[in-house]
C-alpha cells in the first residue's frame, strides 16, 4: 500500500476516533439542561466524562497535527478555507474545557449556571460545526490553482453541509444519551434510557437524508455498504434501547458514528478536498501529501505509539468503569 493511502486511512481513523469519543462528551454537554433536573444530577452527568474528556479531545489535536505533517496542503487549504467554522469550534472548545475545571470551584447558583451554559454551548457548537466541516470537505469547495479557497463563509453554510451539521448534532446527542444510560445509576439513568430511543428516532430522518445525499452525489460501492450498515446500526440502537439493553445500544451509536465517518471518508477518497470550480485544482491524497521520507517516519511513530495510546486510554475507561449516581457526588 502506498504511504499516502496509509496516511489517508490514519487521518480518517483519527477523526473517527475523535467523533466516537468526543461525540458522547458533546452529547452529555448538550443533554445537561435536558436531563439534569438539579445541580446534583448535572454533576452526575459531568462526572461521567470528567476523567475522560481531556484524553478524548487529544484525538482531534493528533488528527490536526498528523494532517499538517502528512498532507500539508490539505491542512493549509482546509484550515484557511474553513476559517470561521473552525473559529467557532475553537471558541466552543475553549469555554467548555475551562467549564469542566472551574464549574465546581465556585459556590453560587449563578456561577454554576453560567458554566452549565458554557458546557452546553461549548458542546452544541462543535457538535454541529464539525458536521458542517466534514460535509463541506466531502462536497468540495471552490479552490484556485494554488489550492486556496475562493468562496465566502456563506457558501460553507449550504443545505448539504447544514444537513450534515444537524446529523452530527443529533447523532452525538443520542450517543451521549446512551452513554449516560451506560454510566449512571438511579433516576437519571431511567430518563436517559427513555430519551435515548426518541433521540435515535429523531436522528434517523436527517441522518438517512444526509447519507443518501452523500451516496448519490459522491458515493461509491464501499460508501454504499458503509451507509447501509450505518443506518442499520442506528436502528439497532433504537431497538436495543427499547429492549433495555443500554450497553449494546451505546455500542450501536458508537458504530453509527464510526460507520458514518468511514462512509464520508470513503466518499471523499481519492480526494482530500475536491475543487468545485475546476477539477484540476482538487486536492488528492497524492498531490496534497508530504514526502515519502516524512510519511515513513510518521508511519513508524504511529505503529509504535498508537497501540500504546489505545492501551492506556482503554485502561482509563476500565479504571472509571463504575456507574455514577447522585450518592457518589460529594457535597461541594
Amino acid at each position: 500500500m502506498e504511504l499516502t493511502t496509509i496516511w489517508f486511512l490514519a487521518i480518517a481513523l483519527l477523526f473517527t476516533g475523535y467523533f466516537i469519543l468526543e461525540g458522547f462528551d458533546f452529547g452529555v454537554g448538550i443533554l445537561l439542561p435536558v436531563l439534569g433536573r438539579d445541580d446534583r444530577e448535572r454533576r452526575v452527568m459531568i462526572n461521567t466524562i470528567g476523567p475522560l474528556w481531556d484524553g478524548n479531545e487529544v484525538w482531534v489535536l493528533t488528527a490536526g497535527g498528523a494532517m499538517f505533517a502528512a498532507f500539508p496542503h490539505w491542512y493549509a487549504s482546509l484550515f484557511s478555507g474553513f476559517y470561521l467554522l473552525l473559529f467557532v469550534i475553537l471558541l466552543g472548545l475553549i469555554v467548555r474545557g475551562v467549564a469542566f475545571e472551574y464549574r465546581g470551584k465556585g459556590t453560587t447558583d449563578r456561577w454554576r449556571r453560567g458554566w452549565d451554559a458554557c458546557l452546553f454551548g461549548g458542546s452544541v457548537l462543535p457538535a454541529f460545526f464539525w458536521g458542517v466541516v466534514v460535509a463541506n470537505m466531502v462536497r468540495g469547495v471552490p479552490l484556485d490553482d494554488g489550492f486556496d479557497y475562493t468562496g465566502t463563509v456563506w457558501q460553507l453554510l449550504n443545505g448539504y453541509a447544514l444537513l450534515g451539521g444537524l446529523t452530527t448534532l443529533l447523532l452525538f446527542t443520542a450517543h451521549g444519551a446512551f452513554f449516560l444510560h451506560l454510566k449512571t445509576a438511579g433516576d437519571i439513568r431511567e430518563r436517559a434510557r427513555a430519551l435515548g430511543w426518541k433521540l435515535a428516532a429523531l436522528t434517523a430522518a436527517p441522518a438517512a437524508a444526509f447519507l443518501i445525499w452523500t451516496q448519490a452525489a459522491h458515493g461509491d460501492a464501499l460508501s454504499a455498504i458503509l451507509i447501509t450498515l450505518c443506518v442499520l446500526s442506528l436502528i439497532g440502537a433504537l431497538v436495543l434501547d427499547l429492549l433495555g439493553r443500554g450497553a449494546l445500544a451505546f455500542a450501536c451509536t458508537a458504530g453509527t458514528v464510526a460507520l458514518a465517518s468511514a462512509a464520508l471518508f470513503a466518499a471523499l477518497w481519492p480526494n482530500v478536498l475536491p475543487s468545485t470550480s475546476d477539477p484540476m485544482n482538487s486536492l488528492t491524497h497524492a498531490n496534497a501529501a508530504a514526502t515519502d521520507k516524512t510519511l515513513g517516519i510518521m508511519t513508524w511513530a504511529a505503529i509504535v505509539f498508537l497501540p500504546v495510546i489505545l492501551l492506556y486510554q482503554a485502561w482509563t475507561y476500565w479504571v472509571f468503569r463504575k456507574r455514577v449516581s447522585v450518592n457518589h457526588i460529594p457535597v461541594a
Partner: peptide, 22 residues
C-alpha cells in the same frame, strides 16, 4: 514547511499530549 514542521507537532500529540491529557 509542512513536510518538516508538521512532524514534530504530530510527534508531540502522539508521544506527549496524549500522555499528559490522559
Amino acid at each position: 514547511v509542512g513536510d518538516i514542521f508538521g512532524a514534530p507537532l504530530a510527534f508531540e500529540a502522539l508521544l506527549a499530549f496524549f500522555v499528559e491529557s490522559t
